[in-house]
Amino acid sequence: MSALAALEASPPHLAQIAERLRRVTVEVYGTSGGGAGILWSPDLIVTNAHVARAPRVDVGLADDRHVEARLVTADRRADLALLRIARCGIAPAALADSDALRVGAVVVAFGHPLGLRRTLTAGVVHALPPALPGGRRWIQADLRLAPGNSGGPLADTAGQVVGINTMIVGGLGLAIPINEVRRFVASATASPA
């Protein structure tokens, strides 16, 4: 078998990764076009704050159910929001250690770019710059994103989520490292509601 054929036959291959991401990526319908979100636990969704702007938003799950989500908390500066839904029975996303990411590694994004639902794009990690003083860290990815990818997963070749796609700057996809998202969710769920 040729190496390229093996890439499409030996698990985990991109088609499997796409299927894994499809199950854990939701659609968030907002007033400004909407975006994507990641199923964090059976009743929690993480997305960008700029995607979930209202206290209540409609969410489309991978099994085509539409549910109402309540905004638990949003951090506008970090551009992260946590939404709660009724327990949905879908297995949540597997998360990677974003500190272990390497420049040049293959990454994929799943989302709804320009309204094109459930779309996979692929590329490589472009750079992992250190945070500027007082600033935030980003995963910079050499891959194609568009509005509608916001809030959705950037994942590694194991299908584990390494970041949340958030911005496009100079043609680069910028994602919030998932380890930062972990800290956001931990503090959001620790504080009394």
Binding site: M1, A3, A6, L7, S10, P11, P12, H13, L14, I17, R102, V103, G104, A105, V106, V124, V125, D156, T157, A158
Partner: peptide
């Protein structure tokens, strides 16, 4: 057997080697 993970690791390794 080559997997897409091997490809990813190879690309990251190539970057690391050349970046020096």
């Amino acid at each position: 057997m080559t997997t897409v993970m091997d490809l990813s690791n190879a690309l990251a390794g190539a970057v690391e080697r050349a970046a020096g």
